[in-house]
Design a protein around this nucleic acid. Structure first.
Length: 636
RNA sequence: GGGCCCGUUGCCUAGUCUGGAUAGGGCGCUAGCCUUCUAAGUUAGAGGUCGCCGGUUCGAAUCCGGCCGGGCCCGCCA
């Protein structure tokens, strides 16, 4: 193998497949599928189970076949420097790579690509629109919302890494009943002069109070419903009050998002949807379909419904006529969701105007939909990913199926529900209404994590000042929380326990950050002039070799996650935990290397080679951390 | 009634799509390792009927069927 590759492990695999293909009758796909990593590195670096497949064809003992093939393969492999040896063990054919040659190849790939190492252009030219976390603008983010936001943000990073152009969208429901409830309360009581709390926390608590009254007293419910109706009228005082309140709330919520390194490109506001004419345009489009009709009689007389009895998945519904627009003409959630999904794909002309909501700390402006402003829409997108809890699997499926029913087959296929299970407590779930989230907001969890991290940082770095302690503690806290959310497979419920979320040892973000800091420290201690050419073929210790192999696999690992995003009956799978476990494993291998292979005390030639390896590791783990949105810490 | 997700050691969990060698980790527990690049680390050890039963297969945590337990979903609600 000559030169460098953006996917070194894949290059090694291709090389081996080529050799096997020359010596057997099997096609390349079969060979690729037969390749696996043996359970124990002592058995080899790669193995092939082609003997099982050949045994079926030739009707012979697989072990005998393996024995025979190995002889041929050894001859072929000898010509190139990449393979050390090939041996059979029973039916398995085990391949040992040349450690020095692989180290040389992998390290040159990483050093060439640097911060781009891990990226690929496999999906170049495709545009993906992601929606997350769409938290109601009436309360602070709790840890359930945090899971949504972190999954969405990380998914965006991964899609960007494999070549997608990614648009990050947030949805602001400023017309919901929850907003009416708070508006009612604030207009009655007047807004307090000095609110000491963060504004979203303040609203959240009011909301819990109002909700109680709302459920208890019919008269209050009636008043609030009236406020809700008035919110639809943009000239009403209720609407004007609510707009100020919601804007303030979203800005407060975004302070939390920014702490986590989460940014967006656009916001879609429900009030803009309601008054832009979007719903009317969408409704007309929908009614062009013969399966969307206005019912004349029966319980749903006057409603515009989608007839779903022809679709297998929905024929067991109580009534397969799904209401999209009520008899009074207003849209249902499903109706609005379909209209919005159509907008995302640009099925009809964009009716929105756009205004700057605010400038984010990353320097980028976030645009919100509005009724006046500039006409800079999102343009054509190929795929839409909605990050929504798994409880909404059925409604999401409805939206995509109806899209298909309307004739937008491709758009339906390209609609993805990224489903994740909820975060709960041992005894209860998080409920906005009951206020069970109090004490478990994202801000509180981050603050508590930071407090603990601060103690640790101060203990380890007695010479640091308060500012440096504080900064690192914040980075540790953010990393720990993001990792905690990503390391759980999205289809698994998270039971939130402080001792788990705040455990900074073992399988957690600080471990990764620490490995980076250690690598950085080694490199810092070397003066530039000592930078001599290292003989990379000296890197043959098992700890060095295992680290090299792990580094080599990053690009393929990211691609595997992207390829694994297939549609299922419940949504589209997204294995965020694969990236965390890859990164954890990489850091573990570095820790072992660190413990058993001294760098600065090694012989000059070996030292230079190990320095190169440390550099490669540092780049790779750094790229993993930025993919996961975990802050990189130089010293901790 | 119908559909979906989960069940792996004291606790948390990877692996299940695409079957393959002794089922990986982490927490906790036990015993080592800092005069050596940051011990948020590392080495070793104890701990498992992969929910249960059956089937397919040379081979099943993984595929198929049937159960059991936990959660979620099937509104002109929000």
């Amino acid at each position: 193998m000559r030169g460098t590759s953006s996917n070194p492990w894949k290059s090694v695999i291709d090389f081996i497949v080529e050799i096997i293909a020359e010596k057997t009758e099997l096609d390349r796909m079969q060979i690729i599928e037969s390749l696996e990593v043996p359970p124990d590195p002592n058995l080899g670096d790669l193995a092939t189970t082609v003997s099982f497949q050949l045994a079926k064809i030739e009707k012979k003992n697989p072990a005998l076949i393996a024995n025979k093939i190995v002889e041929y393969l050894e001859q072929a492999a000898e010509k190139e420097g990449f393979i050390e040896r090939i041996e059979s063990k029973g039916p398995y054919i085990n391949i040992f790579l040349n450690r020095g040659a692989l180290a040389k190849f992998v390290i040159s790939c990483v050093s060439e690509l640097d911060t781009d190492y891990g990226k690929s252009d496999s999906y170049k030219g495709l545009r993906a629109l992601l929606e997350y976390p769409a938290v109601n603008p009436s309360k602070p983010w709790h840890i359930g919302h945090t899971r949504n936001a972190v999954i969405g943000d990380t998914l965006g990073n991964i899609l960007e890494h494999v070549g997608y152009d990614v648009i990050r969208l947030d949805y602001i429901n400023d017309l919901g009943l929850q907003i009416a409830q708070i508006t009612w309360k604030l207009m009655m009581d007047g807004e307090p002069e000095n609110i000491e709390e963060k504004y979203d926390h303040f609203l959240g608590k009011i909301y819990v109070e109002v909700q109680e009254a709302f459920e208890k007293f019919e008269s209050i419910e009636k008043e609030i419903r009236e406020v809700s109706r008035k919110l639809e009228d943009l000239s009403s005082s209720e609407s004007k009050h609510s707009l100020k309140m919601v804007t303030k709330c979203v800005k407060a919520q975004y302070q939390t998002a920014y702490r986590l390194g989460i940014y967006h490109d656009y916001q879609v506001w429900e009030s803009a949807i309601a008054h832009s004419g979007l719903l009317e345009i969408a409704r007309e489009k929908m009614m062009e379909c013969e399966n969307v009709v206005k019912l004349e009689e029966g319980e749903k007389a006057g409603c515009i419904v989608a007839k779903l009895d022809s679709i297998d998945d929905f024929k067991d519904m109580k009534d397969p006529n799904k209401v999209l627009f009520r008899s009074d003409g207003t849209r249902t959630y499903t109706g609005a969701d379909i209209a919005l999904q159509m907008w995302k794909f640009g099925i009809y002309p964009d009716p929105f105007f756009y205004q700057i909501f605010e400038k984010q700390p990353n320097g980028e402006e976030i645009l919100r939909t509005a009724l006046e402003g500039k006409k800079n829409g999102i343009g054509k997108v190929d795929l839409v990913f909605n990050v929504i809890g798994t409880a909404q699997a059925h409604p999401q499926k409805l939206v995509y199926s109806i899209l298909d029913l309307l004739g937008y087959e491709e758009e339906s296929q390209n609609s993805h529900h990224i489903a994740y299970e909820f975060v709960g407590l041992e005894e209860t779930d998080f409920s906005g209404r009951k206020g069970t989230w109090i004490g478990y907001t994202c801000d509180e969890v981050l603050d508590k994590a930071k407090e603990l991290a601060y103690e640790e940082v101060a203990k380890r770095n007695p010479d640091w000042g308060e500012e440096q302690n504080d900064q690192v503690a914040e980075q540790v806290a953010v990393g720990a929380l993001r990792y905690f959310m990503l390391n759980a497979s999205p289809d698994r419920k998270i039971t939130f326990r402080w001792e788990d979320a705040l455990d900074f040892n073992g399988d957690a973000a600080p471990y990764l950050q620490y490995s980076y800091a250690r690598a950085t420290r080694i490199l810092e201690k070397i003066d530039a002039q000592e930078n001599q050419e290292g003989n990379l073929s000296l890197l043959s210790a098992p700890q060095e070799f295992e680290l090299v192999k792990a580094i080599a696999k990053l690009p393929e690992e990211i691609l595997e996650v992207a390829r694994g995003m297939r549609k299922n009956v419940w949504g589209t799978g997204f294995s965020s935990n694969r990236i965390t476990s890859y990164s954890y494993n990489l850091a573990t291998l570095f820790s072992r290397f660190y413990d058993s292979c001294p760098v600065l005390k090694a012989e000059p030639g070996l030292m230079a080679a190990r320095l190169e390896l440390v550099k490669s590791f540092r780049t790779t783990i750094s790229n993993c951390l930025s993919l996961l949105g975990i802050p990189v810490i130089e010293r901790m």
